[in-house]
Structure formats: C-alpha cells, structure tokens
C-alpha cells in the first residue's frame, strides 16, 4: 500500500516535511513560506545543556514547533501522538496508513539505514513522512533525499524510539482537517512578529541576539579554559549545527531571506525586499564565521590567532541581526 504523495527534496527536514504534507493536502506552498509562518528562525546557546557532550547551539526553534505553528496559523487541525510502547506506536502508524493518511514522524538519524553511514549520527530531531508499507518495509518521504526511500520496520521502530537528548518517543503527527480558507497574510505577519520577539526580547541571555553575544564571550575563553582538543570539538559542533544539521549547508538565514521575499509580495510591502537582502548578507557573515572556524578545525588557521576574529565575527552577526529584526518588527507593526 502506497499513498500517492508528492515528494519533494528540501533544505531542512521539518520545514520540508510540513511543506510536503501541506502540498499533499491542497495548500501549495514553498519551504521558505512554511519556515517563516512557522517562525523557524532563532538562535540559542545553552552551555549547560549538552548534545553529544557538547553545548547546545541552535540556529532554529525546537523540533516540532515549525509544523505546530505553521499549521495553527493557517487554521489547520492536526493531531500529535507519543507512545511508550513501540508495538502500539507501529500499530497506530499502520492504521493511519491503511486509512490513506500520510504520517509525519520524529526519528533518530543514527538508526535510519537509508542514510549513508558517514551521515548517521546521534541526532533525534529528524523528521520524515511515512507514506506506505510494502511487506515489512515502510515507504518514506524524507525531504533530505531526492526520491522516496524504503526502511525496514525494525529499523524505523528503533529510530522512532531512539534514546538520548530529544528522544522522539514514537512521536507522529498528521493533518486531521484542512481549513476552508487560509489567512496567509495574517499567518505571515504572526510568524514574523514571533521571530522578532524571539531574537530581540527574550528574557534569558542564552537566546536571540543576546545568545549570539554570549557565545562570542564564551568562545573567546575556550582555548584557555578547555585546551586545544576540546576547543576544536566545541567549535566543530557549532559549525555543524549551523551548516549541517537539517539544512545540508543551506543555512536558516538564507531560507528566511527567501521567506521575506515571498512575504513582500504577500503583504505588498517592498521594505521587506530590502530586509530580505540584509538577511542574505547576514547569512554570508555567518558563513564567514563558519569558514574561519572550519579552517581552525582543519589546522589551516591557528587557534591563537583566530579566536578573537571568530568572536568579532559573532559580534558582527549579533549587531546586524539586531538591526534586521528591529527594522522588521517596526515595518510589520506599522
């Protein structure tokens, strides 16, 4: 049994899954629009929460929130379920598939055999859509891949019940009922306001623009505090979170720039085009940071000479993002 599902490859798993699901259910949209309405852009540096023994650094909101917020803002009814028992989780998935419903699922990348071994790592926030079952194989639309893939039931079970940080606990989600009408301008406006709030007005110093500055301050101290080996692990982790996890190098700032371009058309607001260009420039600035950091990790630049420059680049990113989101907030609230 296979659902006729319009699989498309996208830059990031959760916004890609949401886009494919919404396209299937009759709301044609781009990944950028979903990412923007779902307020996916964020920055957080939480040194006391460790992912693979390294401080949590995130360039997006928590797993699951893009789907939840995008669908809510578009007035779409969805259902989310978690399970304790893997067999009960599988039974429910099979029932939904038998009813012809494509099902989103949170999984651990490490257990998915269709990922090349080099890309399998312990990250439990990976999203995909299950679109059918043939024999003992599930048919899967994973937006990271060009074509739908197959996954043995036993492997998907392990991936859905992977242990550790962000453990998925068998989480599935699916569309129950589409809205009859979509207030796209309203949803775009609400998404933008939330991102501005998250980046500018967070009460904790680990989030938004303040979080970027905190990372800059701490990063400068890493070589003296941690020693060379640990410093390089910490730095490599930041770049992987920025350039690799979920984005395949796309970079959330570039996706958000594409969203602002679409938002300019939807809201008939040309100022958003300028802000889109600014967001792309900020993406390039983050990439300059990643470039220097990767050179340090690869031994092409020295630790002693580079950490002050890396911290300066982060401070520039913070300054530019503060400017961008202040202007964005002003134009959207006008």
């Amino acid at each position: 049994m296979k659902i006729d599902f319009p699989h498309q490859q996208f830059a990031h798993c959760e916004s890609g899954v949401t886009t494919n699901l919404l396209n299937y259910h009759g709301f044609p949209c781009s990944e950028a629009l979903v990412f923007g309405i779902g307020a996916g852009l964020f920055f957080g540096y939480v040194p006391f929460i460790k992912l693979n023994f390294l401080p949590l650094t995130t360039f997006r909101t928590a797993p699951g929130s893009i789907f939840a917020k995008a669908t809510k803002r578009l007035g779409i009814e969805v259902k989310r379920e978690k399970f304790r028992d893997p067999l009960a989780a599988e039974k429910k998935l099979d029932e939904l598939l038998a009813a012809g419903r494509p099902v989103g699922a949170q999984t651990g990348v490490f257990w998915l055999p269709f990922f090349p071994p080099a890309y399998r790592f312990h990250f439990n926030g990976h999203n995909l859509v299950v679109i059918g079952k043939e024999g003992d194989d599930y048919l899967i639309s994973d937006p990271i891949f060009e074509e739908p893939v197959r996954c043995p039931a036993a492997d998907l079970r392990k991936a859905r019940f992977a242990k550790g940080a962000l453990a998925p606990k068998g989480k599935i989600y699916y569309v129950e009922k589409m809205a009859e009408q979509f207030d796209v301008p309203g949803a775009v406006t609400a998404g933008i306001k939330e991102v501005c709030r998250g980046m500018l007005k967070t009460p904790v110093p680990m989030a938004g623009v303040r979080g970027i500055r905190l990372l800059a301050r701490q990063l400068e101290k890493w070589p003296a505090k941690l020693g060379d080996k640990q410093t390089l692990l910490y730095l490599g982790h930041v770049i992987r979170m920025q350039e690799e996890i979920g984005t395949g190098g796309g970079g959330f700032r570039f996706i958000y720039a594409a969203f602002l371009q679409e938002a300019a058309e939807i809201l008939k607001n040309d100022e958003l085009l300028d802000l889109s260009n600014h967001c792309t420039e900020i993406g390039d600035l983050w990439r300059d940071f990643a470039l220097l950091a990767s050179r340090v990790c690869k031994g092409r630049a020295t630790i002693t000479d580079s950490f002050a420059d890396l911290a300066d680049l982060l401070r520039q990113c913070a300054t530019e993002e503060q400017l961008l989101f202040t202007r964005l907030n002003a134009t959207i609230c006008r």
């Binding site: 490859q9 950028a32 395949g248 796309g250 570039f254 720039a257």
Partner: peptide
C-alpha cells in the same frame, strides 16, 4: 554564485 537557501550544498556538492 551563492549556494544557499533551498538549493542546498548537499545537492550541489
């Protein structure tokens, strides 16, 4: 040319 946005480096590389 910028490799970014929805045209990912994963695909292009």
């Amino acid at each position: 040319v910028r490799i970014g946005g929805e045209k990912t480096s994963r695909e292009v590389l």
